[in-house]
Design a protein around this nucleic acid. Sequence first.
DNA 1: CGGCTTGTTGAAGTCATTCAATATTAGTGG
DNA 2: CCACTAATATTGAATGACTTCAACAAGCCG
Lengths: 240, 240
Amino acid sequence: MTNLFVAKLGGHATLTTAEIAKLTRACQGARGYPAGHDLIHEGDASGGTFVVLEGWACRYKSVPGGGRQIVAFLLPGDFGDLHAGVLTGLDHSIATVTKALIATIPAAEMDELVTMRPAVTEAFWWAQLVDESILRAWVVSMGRRSSMERVAHLMCELYARMRNIGLADADSCEMPLTQLVLADALGLTPVHVNRVLRKLRTAGIMLLSDGVLRVLDPAGLTRLAGFDDNYLHRRPTRTA
Amino acid sequence: MTNLFVAKLGGHATLTTAEIAKLTRACQGARGYPAGHDLIHEGDASGGTFVVLEGWACRYKSVPGGGRQIVAFLLPGDFGDLHAGVLTGLDHSIATVTKALIATIPAAEMDELVTMRPAVTEAFWWAQLVDESILRAWVVSMGRRSSMERVAHLMCELYARMRNIGLADADSCEMPLTQLVLADALGLTPVHVNRVLRKLRTAGIMLLSDGVLRVLDPAGLTRLAGFDDNYLHRRPTRTA
DNA sequence: CGGCTTGTTGAAGTCATTCAATATTAGTGG
DNA sequence: CCACTAATATTGAATGACTTCAACAAGCCG
């Protein structure tokens, strides 16, 4: 199986064979974790960068009162904080969502990769900017979309991202999110997520069950969500 | 008056005199704009970077149906997208909130600044990461806080940021936001913003009027908001 | 098998929206 | 400087979206 981390970066900058080798090697020490496992916790000093090789993870912030708000999903090929060496402490936590295979790149090695190789630097910049762009889309969803539109939009985002890394079929993909996790991500209650999913199901728009998303009416889903994938910035400026 | 853009970057990396001069010079061609003026619009190819020297600006995304969601406020010293040359098109718009003095740095010049000078690069990285961190805090606010907590949290954020750039008094600062703009930022209706502000006023917690925020009960406001300023990452890692 | 997590549904309540009307302020032109 | 107009602020009443509380079903793991 190809390394999706390297593939992702390589898709947005022309990497030399040496750079590819270096990035691949940095992922050698990957380790498996169970679902729901905290990789790093809010307040910790950041000791490195996590790269998700298989499975899903998420960033989240705890809220006074006991709950949490998920602020991003990390899919295979995505990585955690590059904050290492730049910011003081982590302002959020990272946890696995499913059983996952995670590589940990030490801060020093990461620094070297990011600093020394212009192509790699650019690829990281790109990834960082896309992350921020997704975050802006989340704010829009939370602020201006109804619960149904919000669910639809998240499904569109995740399906598009899965497709970008070759992990989606024509009208379905893995979506290993419990309704509780969805609620944590969407700013809704699990109960309401359940009701919204039922509505989407009975409306013949989409179906989420057993960790699989099936899109029954792609055009309808996109329209409902008000989804436009341009914010995922698929294509790089310079043609490889 | 000092250039807050240069001051901000200088606060997080040790800049040489030459670098300071270069950054300052890049802001020479500043221009005034009226309030509510679009500096760049969603979908445009990004032609440079905006630096806010005086006044306030915001990033926003339009939503199908006519409204908009503000996703960030740009205070004096803040700058718009560094996306130039990395991403395809802009996924959001930038507009002035008040009458503002804005410098426009051409993409080429920006590239040179960002790429050639390690200290400047690092400062930009830092600023970018803080922006993202603020965005995460917004998602948490929208997802998990009541309208009153949300207003309180935004006031805390903006007051803290104003203080960081030396534009706040002990218990008050400029806050040139209409209730309509606040509503666009908080994902609420203007009517409800009005009611929340009244509640905060009659509770003796804070007072927002005539473009000025007066914090009557700092501890109470912070507690209500669940505000912890560590996500603004005030201090850099390397001691200057 | 038994316990735990996840999913499902109903009924009641709350928070924020919507609609609508009026007051206040600010900006503009005579 | 005043009159006029538009933008902003304020308040009430009714509606609606989502939450809360509660109960139960279904699947999964040890």
